[in-house]
């Protein structure tokens, strides 16, 4: 309980620091919101008037307080590009990208864990080499290239999955999954390498442990020994790496969503950056940071559920 409190406190503190950085950066960049609204050729007096009415001439601290207050109360302002309130816009996109992130992680783990376990059980044999090569192949190719290959093969040639577009999962879940499948697979193949290596090394350490020998001496079948006894011990570090990869994933998602014309957070961030939609940029960065941190917190909590030794304290 004390642990959870400590962690939440540190999450809040980190979010506070991130809010200062995002707020600061967008204020240091040349060109402000008023100019974005009225264009560079606008009348200086009208521009000044708009600045005054938007409160852009207030001291930075006041502006920050107003922005932060809005963020906390759900009033995130309006997107200049879409002319819509930001909060509902982002929540819809978070849902879309959330589907991709979850599917990516599920696919990456579903591929990496068996591959890593397989490699660990046959270390330094051909199975091990095959596993490393497969994993590295995914890592060494850029995501967008994998994406294009997947589109060519699964969408254009086989026609199993749509090559682009987005379906709202609250309206048609099956369709949403079908649309998210190829982008998720492209991302998963990129993440797989680290996870496979991590699984392999963690499993190799665990399989040499005495308690594995004890489990075998009890007459448990090898399947139970490996998947039931060893894997729960090895899964912790794998989960930690997976949690850290979420951050990296949001970088790749920008490219992949654009490639697949999938209108999620990545696509939205890209549009916001391209059009210097400052309020939207601030909000997207803030939301992504919060999601990454909350996911990592969840991973750490999960770790404590799996491993009783770190439950105390």
């Amino acid at each position: 309980m004390v642990y959870l409190l400590n962690r939440l406190l540190s999450v809040a503190l980190t979010l506070f620091l991130i809010s200062i950085v995002t707020f600061g950066i967008t204020n240091i960049l040349p060109g402000d919101v008023a100019m974005m609204i009225m264009g560079t050729q606008s009348n200086p007096e009208a521009l000044e008037g708009l600045r005054e009415s938007l409160g852009l001439n207030d001291p930075l601290l006041v502006q920050y307080g107003r922005w932060m207050g809005g963020m906390l109360t759900g009033n995130w302002g309006e997107s200049l590009l879409f002319n819509e309130p930001i909060a509902p816009l982002i929540s819809q996109k978070v849902l879309a990208s959330g589907l991709i992130v979850v599917m990516t992680m599920m696919m990456a783990l579903a591929l990496a864990i068996p591959l890593g376990v397989w490699a660990a059980r046959h270390r330094d044999r051909w199975q091990d080499t095959t596993s490393s090569t497969t994993a590295l192949l995914g890592l060494s190719m850029p995501d967008f290239f994998i994406g294009i290959m997947l589109i060519l093969f699964f969408a254009a040639y086989l026609g199993w999955f749509p090559s682009s577009g987005f379906v709202d999962p609250t309206e048609n879940f099956g369709g949403a999954v079908r649309h998210a499948f190829l982008p998720s697979l492209a991302l998963a193949l990129g993440l797989m390498a680290h996870l496979t290596r991590m699984t392999r090394s963690a499993m190799m350490g665990i399989l040499n442990q005495d308690f594995i020998r004890v489990a075998r001496a009890k007459g448990l079948p090898e399947r139970t020994v490996v998947w039931g006894y060893a894997l729960p011990n090895a899964i912790g570090p794998v989960m930690t790496v997976a949690g850290l990869q979420i951050g990296y994933l949001f970088g790749s998602i920008i490219v992949i969503e654009s490639l697949f014309s999938y209108t999620g957070m990545g696509w939205l961030t890209y549009q916001a950056l391209l059009n210097r939609d400052i309020p939207l940029i601030q909000s997207t960065i803030f939301v992504i940071a919060a999601v990454v941190m909350l996911v990592n917190l969840a991973v750490d909590l999960l770790y404590r559920v799996i491993d009783p030794r770190i439950r105390l304290g």
């Binding site: 004890v214 075998r216 001496a217 009890k218 011990n233 491993d307 009783p308 030794r309």
Partner: peptide, 20 residues
């Protein structure tokens, strides 16, 4: 194994699975 023949090992600190 474990039925007709039982075995105990040297290191009690590592002979038990820590997560069960």
């Amino acid at each position: 194994r474990g039925d007709r023949i039982g075995m105990i090992f040297q290191e009690p600190m590592t002979a038990l699975n820590p997560v069960f």
